[in-house]
C-alpha cells in the first residue's frame, strides 16, 4: 500500500479498513497503519502486554521482589517448605527462600538467554540465508546441506551434548542453543530471498551497477524484516522453553542464581505435598512463552507473512 492515499489521523480513517474517508486527505504514516491493524487484534495486544510486563519485571526485579536477598545463597531452615502466606506469597523452597522473589529474578535469566541466543543466531542465520538465496551455486548447496544436517539432530540431545562437553552454565547453554538456532533462520530467510531474488527492482539495481552488498543490504534485507521480526518473536518463546528444559535437566545457571527451569526441578522432588514449589516458576515459564507466542502470532497476522 503506498503511503499517498492513507489518512493522517484516526478520525479521518474508515473504522473497518483504516483507509481514508477523504481521498484528498494528506498522507498518514505507515507506522500508524501498522499500529491500526495490530491494535484491532486482541490476542496480539494481550501478548504485547505480557511481553512488556515480563521485560519490566526482569528490569525492576530488585524493586518488585519482596525478599531480594533470597536470590543469593541464603539459608533459613526454620522457614523451609512454608506454604504461601502474607509474607511469602508463593511459599518458600527447600532452603527457606521466598519463591516469589526468586521467580521474579528468574525472568532475568530467561530473558538474558533470549537476548544472547537470538542476538547472535538471528543476524548470522539471516545473513547466511540471504547469501545462500542470492548467490546460489555452491554457497547455496553448502548452507542448505548444513542446515539439513542440523535439522536431523534432536536439538535437546545436541544441546545436552555440547553443554556437557563445556561446563554446564548459562553462557555455555547459550552457546549450545545458538549453535543450533541459526539454521532455522537461515532456512526461512533463504526461502524469502529465493522468492524475491528475480524481481524486477533487484534486476534494476544490478543494472544500475549496485554492488552485491548494496543489493543485499538495501534491496533484499528490507523485504525480510517483517519475516525476521515475526520469527524472532516466536523464537523468543521457544528459547525460553528450551532453556527452561535444559536447566530442568541440570544444565542451567549455577545455584544459587534463580532460574525458572531449575526451580521447577528443585520443587519437583517435593511434589505433590508441596505443590507451591513448582507452581510459581512453572507458571512463569508458561506466562512468558504464552506472551511471546501471542505477540508473534499477532505480528504474523499484521504483516501477513508466513514463517
Amino acid at each position: 500500500m503506498s503511503a499517498k492515499n492513507l489518512p493522517q489521523t484516526a478520525a479521518e480513517a474508515d473504522i473497518e479498513t483504516g483507509l481514508p474517508l477523504d481521498s484528498d486527505a494528506p498522507p498518514l504514516s505507515a507506522g500508524y497503519m501498522t499500529w491500526f491493524r495490530f491494535s484491532r487484534n486482541p490476542a496480539a495486544l494481550v501478548g504485547a502486554f505480557i511481553v512488556a510486563s515480563v521485560i519490566l519485571v526482569a528490569l525492576f526485579a530488585p524493586l518488585i521482589a519482596t525478599h531480594p536477598d533470597h536470590v543469593g545463597a541464603v539459608v533459613d531452615f526454620r522457614n523451609r517448605h512454608m506454604p504461601p502466606s502474607a509474607d511469602n506469597w508463593m511459599g518458600t523452597d527447600k532452603a527457606g527462600r521466598d519463591i516469589f522473589s526468586r521467580t521474579v529474578f528468574g525472568f532475568r535469566v530467561s530473558l538474558l538467554l533470549v537476548i544472547g541466543v537470538l542476538g547472535i543466531s538471528v543476524p548470522v542465520g539471516s545473513a547466511l540465508g540471504m547469501a545462500a538465496g542470492y548467490f546460489g551455486g555452491w554457497t547455496e548447496r553448502l548452507i542448505a546441506g548444513f542446515t539439513n544436517v542440523m535439522l536431523a539432530m534432536p536439538p535437546l540431545v545436541m544441546a545436552l551434548a555440547i553443554g556437557n562437553v563445556l561446563e554446564p552454565n548459562l553462557t555455555n547453554a547459550m552457546i549450545a542453543i545458538t549453535l543450533l538456532w541459526w539454521t532455522w533462520h537461515a532456512r526461512l530467510i533463504y526461502r524469502v530471498t529465493r522468492s524475491i531474488v528475480s524481481e524486477d527492482y533487484i534486476e534494476a539495481a544490478r543494472l544500475a551497477g549496485a554492488s552485491h552488498l548494496h543489493i543485499l543490504w538495501r534491496e533484499i534485507l528490507p523485504n525480510c524484516i517483517s519475516v525476521i521480526s515475526v520469527k524472532t518473536t516466536l523464537d523468543a518463546a521457544f528459547v525460553i522453553l528450551f532453556g527452561a528444559t535444559l536447566s530442568f535437566l541440570g544444565f542451567g545457571v549455577k545455584p544459587p542464581t534463580p532460574d525458572l527451569g531449575s526451580m521447577v526441578a528443585d520443587g519437583r522432588q517435593f511434589v505433590p505435598e508441596m505443590w507451591w514449589e513448582v507452581l510459581a516458576p512453572g507458571f512463569a515459564i508458561f506466562y512468558a512463552t504464552l506472551g511471546f507466542n501471542l505477540l508473534g502470532d499477532g505480528l504474523r497476522d499484521m504483516f501477513d507473512v508466513e514463517t
Binding site: G261, P272, I285, T289, N293
Partner: peptide, 22 residues
C-alpha cells in the same frame, strides 16, 4: 493448541503427576 505449544513437556508431566496424586 496454544497451550500445547507454550507449556514445556516437563511441566505437563509434573502437572499430570499432581493431577493423579490428588
Amino acid at each position: 493448541s496454544l497451550i500445547g505449544v507454550t507449556i514445556p513437556s516437563f511441566l505437563f508431566a509434573i502437572g499430570l503427576q499432581l493431577l493423579a496424586a490428588n
